[in-house]
Amino acid sequence: MSELGPDGRTFFEATRRLDEPTEGDRRRIRAKTLAAIAAAGASSAVATRAAATIAGQASAPTGLSAGWLGGAIKGALLAVAVLAGEGAIEIATGRGGPGRAGAGVEAVAGSTPGTAAATTAPALHERPDGGSALSPPPAAGGTAAEATVPREGDPFAHARSGARAASSAPPPPPEVSGAAEAARAPAASGIDEEIAALREAQEALRAGKPADAVRVLDHYQASHAGTALEEERSAARIVAACQASVASRSTADAERFLRERPDSPLGERVRAACFEKRGP
């Protein structure tokens, strides 16, 4: 029961529902968040290679805003993208290296609930390009998160050190794909498995084997219906099928995708892959 007076109570009641997110907000931010997670999952081994491959060419199809974290997130790793130019599904990266957005927040928020509030603010760095980053610049040989020092009484220090050890493990040999690596990861979550499938499809497309990509995604779909990246997988499969020239079926799938998801950030990619004429 609130202790507000009548005027305050009336105003409160009149405004309490104004800031609820809409379905559009939920979908948009969910797509961005999952894309960022996907990219973060690729950070240890795939990101460096992908950054070198795609740096400067990937525009985030999930509509990343040029907002507060734009520099940090884009500069780190982002977006499960369906790149029309290559017709491939990419774990896309933007500028910069495999830094970990949010490390600064972790440094503050990770202290034990109930203890005194942290007195150090997250390191919010203004970037020369006008962006900003919550995470400090990656230290040489380590990520920003690795540069944070566990504080005394931090209950997460042990687990975090384990996570760091995992993330700082040496990259796999070049012949091992990121998808295969991810697929072997122990105790992968549903999202991780899904990301691995997307990545494997990406590898197949890169290798000029769109039919293999379709097979990978179909195989995943058969055993994991209704999962978190369903929209992304659908778009990826359609793009792969169009590349594989499974003409009638893929075009119909593309039409259905565009009809059922008119606001999808992946719609443009699907259109480009399935309906736009390719050059000679």
Partner: peptide, 27 residues
């Protein structure tokens, strides 16, 4: 929103929260 984050920043701010959650949930 109620803590004063302007709309152009909300998406990134919410995303940031859940990136941290995803990374550290197992702890």
């Amino acid at each position: 929103r109620r803590l004063g984050v302007p709309l152009p920043y909300v998406d990134d701010a919410v995303q940031e929260v859940f990136l941290v959650v995803h990374r550290r949930l197992g702890e």
